[in-house]
Every structure is written in structure tokens, then in C-alpha cells.
Amino acid sequence: MLVVAGIVGFPFIKTIYTSLFNAPLIAYTRKAEWVGFENFIYAFINPSFMGGVFHTIYFSLLSISLNILLGVLTAMLLNQKFFGRAFVRTLVILPWALPTVVNAVLWRWIYNPTYGALNALLTQLHIIQNYRDWLGSAGLSTMTMVVLADTWKNYPLVTILVLAGLQMIPKEIYEAVKVDGANWWNTFWRITLPGVRPALLVALVLKTIDGLRVFDIVYLMTAGGPASATKTISFYVYQEAFGFLRLGQASAFSVINVTIIFVFVIFYIKFIRSEGISG
């Protein structure tokens, strides 16, 4: 308890405290000045930061959906008996073992508008006529491409969790429902999904936290561009702290980020309790 208070509680309370000051990052340049909730007001009236909140939520929702979808499908596939299953299971996990920086550089090359593999593939398949600038388009399309790169690396975690859940379901149940004449969809909906629900909820919580605090892949792939279309809350925290040296403002942004994560987590906990799910 003391350790948790030391490594989580103290920094958390200190961040909340700092968010109420106009505090410089480098402490010996000037003293921190009490500003109350001014940093929070600035955050909520700042269209750039609010854009960052929107980008973060978009990234999280899309990323969670894709991770869960791909994770469940892959886990179901890997739960079947086939030749070389152990090898394929190892292969699927490989992207997850890659460092984010390697993944980001890899996908920057794949998306490169001049010599990227994606353009070459899609033009050869006659899906697109001309090479596209995948990371240079306005709106949400660039963020979508970042989510795809992130999903490729991270969905194996969901696969592993769901696969573990699938292996907990007794085979006899499947045999019994087969005898009863249940079709594939009914089996999936009434047996498989409830069986893996605890694993899915763990994956959901982890992916939500990952999504809402995303920074590294965005910083490495797009540097927040084009025209700030991929800047997330964490990006603004970083920019305020290390670019503008405004620790108070950065702390306020962090507190807002943690609050959003908190809301999602409370929702999940309530959901878990109402469903009476236990891990």
C-alpha cells in the first residue's frame, strides 16, 4: 500500500497540485504562480487542445474496435486444430514484440507516397489509379492510417488474452450444442462470447487506457501533422511541458486526460459488476 502511494499517489496528487499553478518546467528560472483553475479554463476554450481531445477519442474508439475484432477472429482461428498451429501462433505474436519506434518507421516506409509498398500494391491491384499521400491528408484519414499501423502491432495482445479465454471453455459444451443442432452464429453468441467475456473486458480496459494516452506512434509517424490533425492529448502534454516549458499547463492537460480515462474505467467496472462477471 505504501509502495502504491509512493509511486502512484504522490505523483498524481503533485500533478493535480501543479495544475493549479503557472509553473515553469525548469524550477530555478522563476517561481510558480498560483492561478487556480485558469489552466483548465485555457484548456477548454483552446480549440487546438479540444481538437486533441477529439483526435484521442477517435483514435481510442477505432483502435479498440479493430483490436477486438481482429483479436477475436485470430484467436478463434488459432484455437482450431491445424498443422503448424504452434508456428502460426508464434508468428502472430511477433508484431507485438516489435518496439513502437520500429513499427512507426516500418509503416512510414509502407505509407511513403513516393516509394511506399502500399501505393505499389494498391495500384498493381488496380484499386487506386494514382499514388496517394497516406499521411498527408486533411481530416481524420491520416489518423485512421496511424490507427491501422498501431493495430497491426498491438492486436496480438487481444489475441493472446482471448485465446486463453477460449481454452477455458470445456469442449463438451460445444459437443452438446452441436448435438442440439445449434448453428455457428448461435454457438458463437451463446457459448463462445460469454466464455471469453472476462478476457475481452481485460483487453478492453487495457486497450482503452493505451488508446487514451497514445503518444509515441503519433510523434514518430506524423509529428502531430498534417495541420495538427493527429495531435492527441498526450502530444499536447508533451508539447506544453518540453516545448513551451509550461509545467502547470501540461499538468492540467494531464489531469483532463486521466479524468477521461477514469470515466471509461468506472463505466467498465460498473458494467462488470452489473453483469456479475468475474475474472
Binding site: D133, G225, P226
Partner: peptide
Amino acid sequence: NPASLQAISDDELRVFGSEQ
């Protein structure tokens, strides 16, 4: 080149150096 929007100096070198 529209790719300029995501290019840094090293990208310029690669594009110029590959006759593009």
C-alpha cells in the same frame, strides 16, 4: 511533390537522390 507535407531533410535527399 505533395509528399513534401510529411518530408524532412533526409526525405528530400532520398527523393532527389532517386531521380524523383
